[in-house]
Design a binder for these strands. Sequence first.
DNA 1: TTAGGGTTAG
Length: 523
Amino acid sequence: MSTSPTAANLLALLRRNAASPTVALRLFLHLTSAASPPAPHSTSFLFRILAAHPSSHALLPSLLRHLLSLPDPSPHLLALLSSSSLPRLPLGFSLSAFRSLRALPSAPPPPTPVYNRLLLAALQESRFDLVESLYKDLLLSGAAPDVFTRNILLQALCAAGRVELARKVFDAMPVRNEFSFGILARGYCRAGRSMDALGVLYSMPRMNLVVCNTVLAGFCREGQVDEAERLVERMRDQGLTPNVVTFNARISALCKAGRVLDAYRIFNDMQEKWERGLPRPDQVTFDVMLSGFCEAGMVDEARVLVDIMRCGGFLRRVESYNRWLSGLVRNGMVGEAQELLREMVHEGVQPNSYTYNIIVDGLCKEGKAFDVRKVEHFVKSGVMTPDVVTYTSLLHAYCSEGNSAAANRILGEMAQKGCTPNSFTYNVLLQSLWKADFSAAQRVFDTSLSTCAPSGQFKPRSQKHGQDKYAESNWHALLHRDDSACTVLKITKRVKTGWGQRGNISENKQQQNDDIYVLENTG
DNA sequence: TTAGGGTTAG
């Protein structure tokens, strides 16, 4: 008959078996029970062991069930939810632990840091609905949100495209820190409103380098090179020394504005004058400069740069190879791109979905010289797992040659594989709507409507940031065509996304719903 | 525990 272990014994046993999560869990389940509950720090230690071994995550539910069978599970659940290992666990598990804790009638409300960790985990998985409900639960439980809590909320609102509400939350915050300013500034930049971000920056008690770089990058993405340069001047006036991030943003902006030689001058200064206080080029600098050359069609310059990168150890990442591959493909050198693909594999750099998509798109655009069916065959050969980008390239190729049957087939396959079309996919389809073979295109489009467009998926904006010019112009073009316009409007109604289920509640209700983020902040 | 530069398709 086994005797109850003392707390120290159990902990020592767990320590000894820290490398074998299954054994540690078995010991824990075997040696503790309702009659002989473990000490919460033992639970905490076991949890850390399990969290450190992703393969043992399947065991977590049994641990949770065991804890719930104890006379007072709350300190154990709290130990689990307070653990620094929480971010490494599946969000679903953390949530069930949290919900179990909240369902215990006698348990005190979880402290704010527990909410903060969960909020952050929800944010990292873009579960804005969850951020919203956790935040409401926090208020309901009587816990007090702190700066961190509100910063996470700010980030979630910005990421959900609700910058105006984020602004209101920001304005109502009783205490802000540098992160609050940085998060809101980034939100504005990602919404294509860098001038508003500049306002946030200037409202800081003291400007800091990170927020400056955030706003600078915003201007750079918007192509506002002059604003960007003015900001750099202002930084220097304030005694802030531009760092490598600042320089990279400038180089990127100049490249995007087509001023590649200006960008290259800065790049050269960084290479040659770093003793004089300029930051040395880093991986990003090389990557950005490489794309700059490629996009400007300066393939020879790019080739020289690639050699420098090879010698300096800057051609080791799949992202860098992808830039060079994309440059070769864009400049019509698909053959050399295929060679490079072999080289990277030889060098031990694993190609990713971007890599294959670049090659596939390059092959698709080879024109009449290349049969799209052959590309499709390559895609299905098992070398790669096609995703929405791959399918969109194929679709584009088939639509371009007016092959609506093949386009339909691709759409069908996407639906079958559960691959959701995005704004690029729809734009390809929409574009073919007003080409010559209108009715065939319409059929393709109807197929897409019935098979590929579950509600809440298609945003008439780009995936990344700012306005989507393609989607917008397609929109306007379609609004001038009667029957197809109706179809598109039907779609836009179905696919509007946003924070939670906004589409189903009245504006008034939504307003009341939003007020919760602002009103409590007076306390 | 939260903010910055950078890979694919329209």
